[in-house]
Design a protein around this nucleic acid. Structure first.
Lengths: 92, 92
DNA sequence: AGTTTAATTAGATAAATGCCTAAATATCTA
DNA sequence: TAGATATTTAGGCATTTATCTAATTAAACT
C-alpha cells in the first residue's frame, strides 16, 4: 500500500471528483472527461496519479480505456485514517 | 467542515506524523519539534495548516502553546472517505 | 495502407508548497 | 524593566504540481 501516493492523490478536488464519478460503475476516459473542462491531457495526468495510488484500475476495451474504482483500497484508506486518530493501544 | 483543507493537510507526511504524535495526548510546539529536524518555523507552518483544517486545536499555557488532536473531526474525515468509495444509494 | 477517434506522453509555464533565516510577539523571571 | 525562552510571522528560494498545446501511440474503419 502506497500511503503517501494515496494521500497525495486524494488532496486534489478534481481527483476526488473522479473517484465519485466512478462510484456507480466504470467509465471511459472520455466519459469522465465530459464532466470536466480540462483538456484531455490534464485529465490523463490525474488518472495517472490515481492509478499510482492504486485507487483506480484500468482496462483497455478496444479504442477505449475504461477506469474503475479499486474498492479494495478502500479498506487501506479507512485504516490509514483510523491510524491517524485512534489512540494507540497499550503494549502488552 | 473544510473538506479541501483537511485533505490538503493530510497530504504531507510530516503533518500526518504530527497527528500521530498527538494521539496519546497534547504536546507543546517545542515537544513536537523534538521529533523533527526542521526549524521551529517550518514546524509552525505545518501546525498552521493542521489548524486551518481544524485537525488540531491550540491553547496557550503560559509561555507554551499546547497542541491537541481535534478528535471530533475524525468523524468528518471518515465520512469523507466513505463518501469517496461508497456506492451511492438509490434515490427514493 | 491511410484516416479517424481515443487516450497518453512530452515539454513548457505559472502557481503552490515546503523549507530556511531573520524579525516580531508573547510570556516569564530576575 | 531588561533578558531569556517559546512560538509565530515575514520574506526569499527551490521543488513540485496543475495546467496547457503539440506530438505520439493504439485501435477501428473504410
Amino acid at each position: 500500500m502506497k500511503q503517501q501516493a494515496i494521500f497525495k492523490a486524494l488532496a486534489d478536488p478534481s481527483r476526488r471528483r473522479i473517484l465519485k464519478l466512478l462510484r456507480n460503475g466504470s467509465k471511459t476516459a472520455g466519459e469522465l472527461a465530459e464532466a470536466f473542462e480540462f483538456s484531455a491531457a490534464s485529465l490523463s495526468h490525474h488518472f495517472a496519479v490515481l492509478k499510482a495510488a492504486e485507487l483506480v484500475r484500468t482496462e483497455r476495451r478496444g479504442q477505449y480505456i475504461v477506469y474503475s474504482l479499486n474498492t479494495s483500497v478502500f479498506e487501506d484508506v479507512s485504516g490509514l485514517v483510523m491510524e491517524l486518530f485512534a489512540v494507540r493501544e497499550e503494549k502488552r
